[in-house]
Every structure is written in structure tokens, then in C-alpha cells.
Amino acid sequence: MSMLAATPELSFTELRDALAMTDGNLTTHIKALQQEGYVAVSKSFQNNRPLTTCSLTAAGRKAFTEYINLLEKIVRQNKPK
């Protein structure tokens, strides 16, 4: 999610390589996020080869921002004084 939040879209291969995940594992994660409406998946062709690209939806961005806010709050609370 943080990778997708930082860029308009990423290809399936880019995500898989960056996260060091298997195809099946990444597909499962993306499907789960897609079902929640957080990630949009589009399929196209590049150089006659299928290209799957993933991007964050507005709902996904909002949810992820809230999640980051929450994490920051937790880190602030646990910061040694």
C-alpha cells in the first residue's frame, strides 16, 4: 500500500520484485485489497505482452492515510521521554 501511495501506479512485476513475493502470494493480497475497494487493477498489453497494473483508489488512499496517522500516534505515545 505504501508503494502504491507513493506513485500513480505500479505494474504487478514491479510490486512482486520490490516486495520479494511470489506471484500467487501477491495475487491473493491484491485481490483482498481490490475486494475492499482499496486497489484498482487494470490489464493491458505492452509490446504484445499482457501488463497488469495496480493503483490506489481514493478510498484506499484515505484508509491508508488514516492507518499512517494511527501508526504515528502510536509511535509518538511510545517515544521515550
Binding site: 505504501s2 501511495a5 507513493a6 500513480p8 492515510t65 499512517i68 509511535v75 517515544k79
Partner: peptide
């Protein structure tokens, strides 16, 4: 906590930069 904070700051900075671009 510093490690976590730095990572969160990086994520936030990248998100904000992306938002500006859009």
C-alpha cells in the same frame, strides 16, 4: 521508535509528493 518514526515520515513524504503530482 526512531526507526519506526523515520519510516513513517518517509512513507508520508512519498505520499504527499505523489498527491501534489496528481
Amino acid at each position: 521508535p526512531n526507526w519506526a518514526e523515520e519510516n513513517l515520515q518517509t512513507i508520508r513524504a512519498l505520499m504527499e509528493r505523489s498527491a501534489l503530482y496528481r
